[in-house]
């Protein structure tokens, strides 16, 4: 069995499932946002929406889904194109750097979202 320490989860199946479940969460979230945006939106109503706990939880779920979804997707892309096979020995280094960069930004975005929504 092929294992890779940088994989998000333990198995291909859970990665695959996470991709699908998170995409559903994201879809629902963006449908909701789009629906809100179709009505008249001003700062107060927007603020009021995000003051409700369910919306905060939903936003957090969507953010977590986005991070997970993005990580799995990027990891796939990196392990497709940024490999020793494609780029020579330096490929491994480039991939690790990119993975580090991607994971740091994703964690960063996550913290930022938490700060915005819960402060």
């Amino acid at each position: 069995m092929v294992t890779s320490v940088t994989s998000f989860s333990r198995t291909g199946l859970s990665d695959w499932l996470i991709q699908r479940v998170t995409s559903l969460v994201l879809l629902a979230y963006f449908v909701l946002i789009a629906f809100q945006l179709t009505g008249s939106v001003d700062y107060t109503s927007w603020r009021a929406l995000f003051d409700q706990t369910w919306m905060k939880v939903f936003t957090l779920m969507a953010a977590l889904s986005l991070v997970a979804h993005a990580w799995i997707g990027l990891w796939s892309v990196f392990t497709d194109y940024l490999t020793e096979r494609m780029l020579g020995p330096v490929g491994n280094v480039i991939r690790l750097v990119c993975q580090l960069g991607a994971s740091l930004s994703l964690v960063g975005y996550m913290i930022w979202i938490i700060v915005i929504v819960w402060s």
Partner: peptide
């Protein structure tokens, strides 16, 4: 087969 590569690529 249940790893991220064998099937799920």
């Amino acid at each position: 087969l249940d790893d991220p590569f064998s099937v799920f690529r």
